[in-house]
Design a protein around this nucleic acid. Structure first.
Lengths: 141, 141
DNA sequence: TATAGTGACTTGCAATATGCAAGTTGCATG
DNA sequence: CATGCAACTTGCATATTGCAAGTCACTATA
């Protein structure tokens, strides 16, 4: 307890990288990772990016039916956290595609481990033939 | 969409195993896994069990300071889901220890993958020397 | 005997997050 | 001119999280 640094008032300079344990719950890399991807939806968006989806509408169309306001918020957070980049392919009306960065793509092993666990321990789950091998995602930035 | 089974009124017989996609969001094993461990705290409790913690007070004492009502609720859910078993070592007052089942212990690769990701991408995180190798947990039931 | 402490919770309530539905904007298409 | 569409935003209801305090059955100390 005593060893934890004290939180100072005022905002981080924008673009400054977040650091444990000021911005996260502890020094533990697992706890800190969960502060970023520890919710019901974030890793599903990452999954979709691995599956080659890049547009808002494609994420919305996934069978889990993510609420649209949550999708918008998650995409912003992922971009702010540097796991994803947004690329405009058209200005008016603005249309963008989202791509994994190296940082986001490095979550691949987490997804694979979860997939194995789910397949083994939850009846009724399965992965489509074409995704038996997680495709290597297209990485940007 | 049409292929999803219809939800029938009435409860599952108690003890009946949950099955995708009736009890989960989709057939996807990742999505279903996230329905169980997709939150800020559940995997931290599992982590503590891997680190050899077994009692309520030990989980509470972790640096992330889990709120006590959430800890109680998570332990119940993990037990109900068969990831953890509760063993009483004393009747009055009731005192118990929690242990991973094979099912819970199979989340080891998920924790390891998250740990690697956190170490690589979040500044300031580190794992204590003694936990460089995740200890094989004691498994019950 | 009285007082305090401990472990493992439960309860009440405020703050935050999630989820649903509907609305918005700037085109493209019929 | 009327729809439709993609990519969001907004409003509001419900659910989850988080803090603090309380409970209960002992055990230890004075």
């Amino acid at each position: 307890m005593a060893s934890y640094s004290i939180k100072v008032a005022g905002m981080k300079k924008s673009g400054q990288k977040k650091t444990a344990p000021e911005d996260f719950r502890s020094f533990c890399p697992i706890a800190s990772a969960l502060d970023i991807v520890g919710d019901k939806w974030t890793l599903l968006v990452i999954r979709d990016l691995f599956l080659g989806k890049h547009r808002y509408g494609e994420f919305e169309a996934s069978p889990e039916a993510i609420p649209t306001n949550i999708l918008a918020e998650r995409l912003k957070r992922l971009e702010a956290g540097g796991l994803v980049v947004k690329e405009y392919y058209q200005d008016n009306p603005p249309r963008a595609e989202y791509y994994l960065t190296r940082c986001g793509a490095d979550l691949g092993p987490v997804l694979l481990a979860m997939r194995e666990w789910g397949k083994k321990h939850i009846d009724g789950t399965h992965v489509p033939e074409k995704f038996k091998e997680l495709p290597a995602p297209e990485i940007r930035e």
